[in-house]
Design a protein around this nucleic acid. Structure first.
Lengths: 206, 206
DNA sequence: GAAAAAAGTTGAAGGCATTCATTTTTGATG
DNA sequence: CATCAAAAATGAATGCCTTCAACTTTTTTC
């Protein structure tokens, strides 16, 4: 049950995260100092570190929120995809893309990605990598559904194909967050082009 | 003409880079301090910064050396690829992979990648991104050759396909450098599996 | 070849993430 | 409700990249 201590802990943790999302988006991840977050959340610098392992950890917590939401939305699409491999994949993918800037700026995405690559064995790195893995698994799930339904040839290695498709999406998304003027519409167009090439190429095989 | 000043400059720059390659590989990029490099190169900390913009810049200089070499080796393969799309692509790709640990450790690769993602608009970030772009272009070149030769269906969008193949390679390589126990042989096997899925799927189309 | 200018070197200082010994607050016990 | 133990908060100290004003060395000028 929630004693005073528990309530205060939850409250402080939330205040810190809230301050972080706001300040990171407004001023940029890099230029926000832990001291700024501490001030905004009305705690000390040391306390921020009692709740989050590192500055990056606060960011990963936000990314996780984002990804959990799109994974949830994706479930419905996998359960009942629109007709045609191309349309089905694009629906799932645009679901991911269109939500990506809900909580995070491009800079925040870049920082989170960089973190997971640079330090894959820290809790943060592992957490981000796991989120990626689950997104890839959902793409694979959809491909299996499409194979069963005859929209994709059943002989192909669904796992390998899922990886290829997810990697394609992921690299496009990396380009997107690296390129300031690139819009979500541009991103969707690029994805459509590559998915089209893939599904049309592959649909011919049986 | 090389006056004393020019000679000393070239000499110092080389000493710093040499010290960096050695120390980064031996002790890890992170734990090597600029002061250590300065000491090893017999210059001051400030002088290191006269020759290289940042610590990351020293790393990117090493990556560039690596990539220029594999691009050169790749030229010969594009000019005269072995028969069959699968074999040709694998030859180019394994050429890239097998040289990747010549000068760089996995940690160094991870750091360079992280840098290019996190700061795409710095000279370093741009430099790394450009190296990537040139690798992708070489893959596309090979695909075009394979199309002309009939090893791949000529109707497909070579550029999009090149992107897909390169992204696949690149993501596998990222996994490789993130995963300490993964060997070059494992990496080749994974690549073979995905390339096989792609070329067999696509070769059916015409 | 002396004086002035240009180029380069130097290391101490600044900034920020992170740690940790100390202090404060909360909860349990009698 | 006074005392003690446990948990949590605090902010000064540490470490490392990077900057920059002062100093040295090299080159040019006359």
């Amino acid at each position: 049950m929630a004693g005073l201590r528990e309530k205060q802990k939850a409250d402080r943790k939330e205040r810190i995260l809230k301050a972080a999302v706001e300040r990171f988006r407004a001023d940029g991840y890099r230029s926000v100092r832990i001291e700024d977050l501490a001030e905004a959340a009305e705690v000390s610098v040391g306390t921020v570190y009692n709740y989050y392992l590192t500055k990056g950890d606060i960011l990963i917590a936000t990314v996780a929120m984002e990804v959990e939401e799109v994974l949830d939305a994706g479930k419905a699409i996998v359960a009942d995809p629109p007709p045609g491999a191309e349309a089905a994949l694009m629906k799932l993918i645009t679901g991911y893309y269109d939500h990506s800037l809900e909580y995070l700026s491009k800079e925040m995405w870049r920082t989170a990605m960089a973190l997971s690559i640079q330090e894959p064995d820290t809790p943060n790195g592992r957490h981000y990598t796991d989120l990626d893995r689950r997104l890839a698994a959902q793409v694979t799930d959809l491909i299996e559904v499409l194979q069963k339904r005859g929209d994709l040839p059943p002989g192909l290695d669904a796992f390998a194909l899922g990886q290829v498709v997810f990697n394609t999406l992921n690299m496009l998304f990396i380009e997107f967050v690296k390129d300031a003027p690139m819009t979500l519409a541009d991103l969707r167009d690029q994805a459509a082009r590559q998915i089209r090439t893939l599904t049309r190429g592959i649909a011919g095989a049986a």
